[in-house]
Amino acid sequence: MTGLRVSPSPHRSAGLTTQKIMLMVIIALLPAAIMGCVYFGVKAALVLIQTIIYCVAFEALFAVVTKKPQTVSDLSAVVTGLLLGMNLPATVPFYVPLIGSFFAIVIVKQLFGGIGQNFANPAIAARIVLMVSFSSQMTNWAVPFWYKNSADVVTGATPLAASWFDNGSAMVSPFTFKDMLLGTTGGCIGETCALALIIGGIFLIIMGVISPATPIAFIGVFGVLTLCYTGSLTMTVYQLLAGGLMIGAFFMATDYATTPLTTKGKVVFGAGCAIITFVIRQFGSFPEGVSFSILLMNLLTPYIDKLCKTKPLGAKKPVKEAAK
């Protein structure tokens, strides 16, 4: 009998592919993205479509120009595009998604070796570059459902930048917890609806795509720090639901390439993100610090990985050479 295939074991595989993992991330992001489009209208949808198309196009172009194998089909560029779009306000002018996508895909991802090799999360790095370069365009927040009453975008504040008013006995935010849970507040397209983000995050945890260690450490440590510092449960819940904390904790701090490999490392990473976010939000001049915290921790990931290796079962410590 001929034509028998001989190959090393194992002879079967789980059938998992990069494409399937990315598809699950896209599915998990969709609820929050859809809610963003509902609140911020066609403009939001157009931003998302632009970032996705640009990211995929840059990924494909880069492969063609550098004569590397085409990797568009792994869908990672779609995830980057979607995440980047969800991290932009709906009001941004056309060149912001274009520049952001270029920076994310070409500079941060491909120039460092492509998928799995980038040192920072492409969407986060691009968002920060855009924020620093186009600070006014990047903080022009549309008011939810503006399109119902007006042809032009009406803008307002985000929960973290909102001016609180005095109702006689206490300072009160213009946003209720319900607003913040459902996302009917000012903010980036995909970050306002905390509920949709939590549902998406839990979906990824159940599907085994992400480890619960990072979001638990990130959200948990941040909550404890805020509670200890402010002494107010209301303020803590407000801080947890506001800004980019949920999208950051579930979708950006869990990026494979730029976060630690082991559970121990993921806990350190999440806790580090929480501390930096807390410090920036409470003491910094920016109202929001999630992006910066994740970027800074991305840079520390190789060191965390080095210190947080697994302990092999039954491994003996190397016997130290006897002193001579």
Partner: peptide
């Protein structure tokens, strides 16, 4: 394909 560092 390329390792995506999923840690599986």
């Amino acid at each position: 394909s390329a390792c995506i560092r999923c840690g599986n």
